[in-house]
């Protein structure tokens, strides 16, 4: 299925958000996920199914403050 990830259209192989984070090679402990303009907290990633046309942002925080 096709989704928009961080502003780009991609072919997504994962069916759930957990899989997408893994597919992108991101460290879950520093990632915030937004699906269709709502933040999905990490405990809900496994139960969040990805649908065709979803707009997803995965933001990987880096250290420094």
């Amino acid at each position: 299925m096709k989704i928009r990830l961080n502003g780009r259209t991609i072919e997504c192989r994962s069916s759930r958000l957990t899989g997408l984070v893994r597919e992108m090679g991101l460290a879950p402990s520093s990632v915030v996920a937004e699906v269709n303009l709502e933040v999905v907290t990490q405990e809900k990633w496994e139960s969040t199914w990805i649908k065709d046309g979803d707009e997803i942002e995965l933001l990987s925080f880096v250290g420094g403050g």
Binding site: S30, Q42, F61
Partner: peptide, 11 residues
């Protein structure tokens, strides 16, 4: 400082 705290606050 730490990315996991940034994520925690935002979530």
């Amino acid at each position: 400082d730490h990315p996991h705290l940034k994520k925690m606050l935002m979530e």
